[in-house]
Nucleic acid binder design. Structure first.
Length: 258
DNA sequence: ATGGTGGTGAAACCA
């Protein structure tokens, strides 16, 4: 059995104790982190390695940044994707055992009338091309992270109010759908078609207390992996911790080897 | 309808 998790930590330096505690208590094989917001020189790798994890990371000042933690040594690590703006550090991929693991922090898009929205759609199209090529090379593959897209209305606390807005707009959902059409299944939704599984609640307006959430963090698994998925769950307890990230953690268990 | 909070890095921007 392998256990794989993803978490947008919104600053790894602020959330390091949360991450270390979750690792110790849950002992996943893989943990993908987004919005580390730390440059490589200041990445707290020693604390993570002390718990028995390898870690690869790519960061920049102030924004973005991703890391991939694993019990086994990562091979074929990549942080540069052809066609993607290299100034924004949003991707880390590696081969762990015989599984290809790709960790994403998809652009937020800000609002549908923003230049950042078109950047997001272009980014997703480039990512689709990359993933198509990866799927041609690796049978057992998982793509996970903060997609900044709520796939369907069940994933939105107030779909009427949000209709057409960034995070839920049709072009974004279509771009995600095109990625899934490559042969990647939304793990949580496949396992639990009718369960609300929010992973993000706005810091503002007491979003978490009032459960005004969205499901923006996803795991997409290739056929051989989804077939052996035993469980997938949002760990919302981390959203209730002192000084939390605005995202919960998502994890899944698969009845296979890495 | 608006604004509410939090992170970065030291004001304004992003989410």
């Amino acid at each position: 059995m392998i256990k794989i998790a993803t978490w947008n930590v919104n600053s790894l330096r602020i959330r390091l104790s949360h991450v270390l505690e979750w690792l110790e208590q849950n002992k996943p094989d893989v943990l993908a982190l987004q919005e580390t917001k730390v440059v490589d020189d200041k990445f707290p790798h020693a604390d993570i390695e002390a718990l028995g994890y390898h870690v690869i990371f790519t960061g920049q000042p102030t924004f973005n940044g991703v890391a991939l933690l694993s019990r086994v040594s990562p091979q074929e690590a990549t942080t540069e994707i052809e066609g993607l703006d290299a100034a924004q550090r949003r991707v880390v991929a590696a081969t762990l055992g015989s599984t290809r693991v790709i960790n994403l922090y998809v652009p937020n898009g800000q609002s549908v009338d923003s230049d950042k929205y078109q950047y997001k759609l272009d980014w997703l199209q480039t990512m689709r091309r990359y993933l198509k090529n990866e799927l041609a090379q690796y049978q057992q593959l998982i793509v996970m992270g903060d997609f900044n897209i709520a796939p369907a209305d069940i994933d939105v606390y107030d779909p009427k109010a949000w209709k057409g807005h960034v995070l839920v707009s049709e072009p974004e959902r279509q771009a995600l759908h095109e990625i899934q059409r490559l042969g990647l299944s939304d793990v949580f939704r496949t396992k639990y078609p009718d369960v609300v599984g929010y992973t993000w609640w706005d810091y503002r307006a007491a979003g978490f207390r009032r459960n005004l959430g969205m499901r923006l963090d996803l795991m997409l698994a290739s056929k051989s992996l989804i077939q052996c998925c035993k469980h997938c769950e949002v760990d919302a307890a981390v959203r209730a911790l002192e000084r939390p990230s605005d995202h919960a953690l998502l994890f899944a268990e698969f009845d296979t080897q890495l």
